[in-house]
Simulated assay, not measured.
Amino acid sequence: MNANDEQILTLVKQERRDEAMRLFVRRFQEKIYSVAYRMFLNHDDALDVSQETLIQADRALSGFRGDSSLDTFVYRITTNVCLNYCRKQARRRTVDPFDSQRIFESLRAGAESEPDVQCERKAKEKMLEAALQKIPEHLRIPVILHDLEGLTVPEIAAVLERTPAAVKSSLHRAKQSLKSILSSGIDVPGEEEAGRFVFSGSEIV
């Protein structure tokens, strides 16, 4: 176990809750925000999810018994908050939450100042992020955890409380969907510079 995790749990056992949460926030706030931002591609949404995740973690930490790692504990709360947030957004919105124009503008803004190779890589990253917004949340989360956060299949299974076989199946289905989306291209409407971005689905493995 990470030394900081041991210190957090020791403080929790000693009922020094404020100190424990200060350490907890320093240890996990970037991970929480990273998952939330990749889920929604929106800074404000990611902040809302991060705040709610920390609130729920604060409530749940006193009951943590060490049956899993703190990382698993945090990712589980974060993914649950993300899914609940998605459901709330779905009830509020009548338009597609994927804002392709915003993705294109953020890409174009940095294109002139970066070398061609970096620009191409960033373009592909943006397209992958955009494509992720077009697959269902229950498939998006395993890909974010596995391919962007670096968790293993058993770790994701623990976070999502699924079997490893179910996680592998979700990853396979998600990546097949991503290959289809990326190989057929992503439309970016509204500007004369806008076009149709395509890159090989074979790059999603």
Rank of each mutant, 00 (worst) to 15 (best):
R59W: 13
L171H: 05
F28W: 10
A174Y: 08
L54S: 03
K134N: 13
D45G: 10
V188P: 07
F64Q: 07
P142Q: 04
K13F: 12
E125W: 13
A166V: 02
D96A: 04
S113V: 11
R26W: 08
A166R: 03
E52M: 02
M127C: 10
K13C: 09
R27G: 06
V25Q: 10
I32D: 00
L9W: 02
Q89G: 03
V198E: 15
E203K: 10
F40W: 04
S200I: 05
A131V: 11
A3D: 09
L47N: 12
R140A: 09
S180M: 03
H172L: 13
E112Q: 12
F64E: 07
E112M: 01
R22I: 14
P97M: 12
V35S: 03
L9D: 02
K175Y: 03
Q176F: 11
Q29H: 11
R38F: 01
L148H: 05
H138F: 07
A131M: 08
L182K: 11
V205I: 14
D96H: 11
R22C: 07
F197K: 01
A157S: 04
E125I: 14
Q29G: 06
T94Y: 01
F197G: 02
K168M: 15
S113A: 14
S169F: 09
T152N: 02
T53Q: 04
R102F: 05
I32H: 00
K122M: 01
H43R: 15
L83R: 10
I141Q: 11
E192L: 07
R91H: 09
L178T: 04
E137C: 06
C82D: 05
V95W: 10
G195W: 04
E191P: 09
S170N: 10
K31W: 15
E125Q: 14
I8T: 01
D116F: 09
I77M: 13
I181K: 00
V153R: 12
G185Y: 05
S68T: 15
A158Y: 01
S177C: 13
F73K: 00
T79M: 01
S62R: 13
K31M: 09
S100E: 14
L70I: 06
S100C: 07
I144H: 06
A111Y: 02
V153S: 12
E120M: 15
C86I: 15
V188Y: 15
G110F: 12
P142M: 02
Q14A: 09
D71A: 10
S180F: 01
V12N: 11
I181V: 03
K168F: 09
S62C: 15
C86N: 10
Y37C: 06
S169K: 14
Q118Y: 07
K175R: 12
D58S: 11
F28I: 04
T94M: 03
S50A: 12
K13T: 08
D48F: 10
K124D: 13
Y85M: 07
V117T: 10
R121G: 05
